[in-house]
């Protein structure tokens, strides 16, 4: 599998599959805590692939990796927090 040796190709394939999963969850009308967590996890995995393999921060100084991955965690946490507040 010559194709999969390039991290960019690998990332593209996973990103495509993950997008189909999110779209499918929308099609079947997925709602509620489990589906929100699933969608946030998918977005996290996708975002991380963009940061590490597209932006090429895998081999960058750690601070920049932490800042961008930290942004993903911050945004996901805020969305989850707001969702929990909506339940109360």
């Amino acid at each position: 599998m010559e194709l999969l040796k390039n991290p960019a190709h690998r990332a593209w394939i996973i990103l495509m599959i993950a997008t189909v999963v999110t779209w499918y969850l929308g099609e079947v009308g997925a709602a509620g805590t489990t589906s929100i967590i699933a969608m946030l996890l998918i977005a996290f995995v996708k975002g991380r692939l963009v940061i590490l393999d597209f932006m090429e921060l895998r081999e960058a100084p750690r601070m920049w990796r932490i800042l961008l991955e930290g942004w993903l965690i911050l945004v996901s946490s805020l969305i989850l927090l707001a969702y929990w507040i909506s339940l109360t």
């Binding site: 921060l57 081999e59 960058a60 961008l68 805020l78 969305i79 707001a82």
Partner: peptide, 30 residues
């Protein structure tokens, strides 16, 4: 040997943009 691709300035710019969007995303969620 760790290298940041591109110019350092663009990364500060990207970070600022991302923070603006983070506020926007949170505002939507809340």
């Amino acid at each position: 040997g760790r290298r940041l691709p591109g110019d350092l300035a663009i990364w500060f710019f990207i970070l600022a943009e991302m923070l603006a969007f983070a506020v926007f995303f949170a505002a939507y969620a809340f």
